[in-house]
C-alpha cells in the first residue's frame, strides 16, 4: 500500500493552520479598523449639496438659533428641513442675484423642494426622536458637532450603536440645561463644578439608565 501523505505533509499542515489563524486575526483587525474608520462612518466627510449652505456663516457668524430653521426639533422625531420659504425669509432681500442661491429661487418659483443630501443619517432600523433628547437637555452639539465651525456640513460623530450606548448607559455627564440645548460652545461648562448636575437632572427628569439600554427603545 502506497503512502497517502508525503514526508512534509505535517509541516504543510502546521504552516496552513498557522497561516489561516493569522489570516483570521489580520482580517479581524482590519475589519475592526475599517468599521471605526471615517470611510465607513463618514465622520468629517462633506457631501455635494445643491447649494453650498454654510452653517458656519448662518450659526457662527450671524448667530441664528438652530430652531429658526429646524422648527420641529422640540416637538417631533425629526428636526425638520427648512422649507424654501424659510430660506427666502432673508434671501428675498439678501444675495438676491447670487448664482449659488439660484436653486433656492428656482425652488420657490416652481414649488419643487431642494434635494439636500442627508448628512446625519441613521440606519432605517433605528427609531430616533429628536424632541425627547432636546427636552432632556442633550445639546445639539453632542451629536452634530460644532456646526458653527463647518462651512460645509459634515458628520461629527460615527452614529454607531456603541457610540449611542456610551451615553445611554450613563447619561448624566452628557446632560445640560434644557433651555440652552442649542448652545454650541460648552468649554466654559465646568465639569467639576457641575459634577452633581447630571445625576440630579437625571433624577429630576425621571431618566432611568437601566431602561435606556432596552433593545426595543431604539429598535421598534
Amino acid at each position: 500500500m502506497p503512502q497517502i501523505f508525503t514526508a512534509s505533509a505535517d509541516t504543510w499542515l502546521r504552516a496552513g493552520v498557522l497561516l489561516a489563524a493569522m489570516g483570521v486575526l489580520v482580517t479581524g483587525l482590519l475589519w475592526d479598523g475599517a468599521i471605526g474608520s471615517s470611510y465607513i462612518t463618514a465622520v468629517g466627510w462633506v457631501r455635494d449639496q445643491p447649494v453650498p449652505f454654510s452653517h458656519k456663516h448662518h450659526v457662527g457668524d450671524v448667530g441664528i438659533d438652530c430652531r429658526y430653521c429646524h422648527t420641529t426639533v422640540e416637538t417631533g422625531p425629526h428636526a425638520g428641513f427648512p422649507a424654501t420659504h424659510t430660506c427666502m425669509t432673508c434671501h428675498s432681500q439678501l444675495w438676491t442675484s447670487a448664482p449659488a442661491l439660484a436653486p433656492v429661487r428656482d425652488s420657490l418659483a416652481t414649488g419643487t423642494p431642494i434635494r439636500w443630501q442627508r448628512v446625519a443619517r441613521l440606519p432605517d432600523y433605528v427609531y430616533f426622536n429628536h424632541s425627547i433628547h432636546v427636552a432632556r437637555g442633550v445639546p445639539c452639539v453632542t451629536c452634530h458637532g460644532r456646526v458653527d465651525q463647518m462651512p460645509l456640513m459634515m458628520r461629527a460623530q460615527p452614529f454607531q450603536m456603541r457610540w449611542c450606548l456610551d451615553c445611554h448607559r450613563d447619561p448624566g455627564p452628557h446632560l445640560r440645561p434644557p433651555d440652552q440645548v442649542t448652545r454650541m460652545d460648552w468649554r466654559a461648562w465646568d465639569r467639576e463644578g457641575h459634577a452633581d448636575y447630571g445625576p440630579h437632572q437625571a433624577a429630576l427628569l425621571g431618566i432611568k439608565p437601566e431602561r435606556m439600554t432596552d433593545c426595543t427603545l431604539c429598535h421598534r
Partner: peptide, 19 residues
C-alpha cells in the same frame, strides 16, 4: 436676528443689508 434682543431693529441680518 432682525429686531435684535432689545427690539431696536439693529439685528445681525439688517447689518448685512436686509431692510
Amino acid at each position: 436676528p432682525c429686531h435684535d434682543v432689545a427690539g431696536t431693529g439693529h439685528g445681525a441680518v439688517p447689518a448685512r443689508g436686509f431692510p
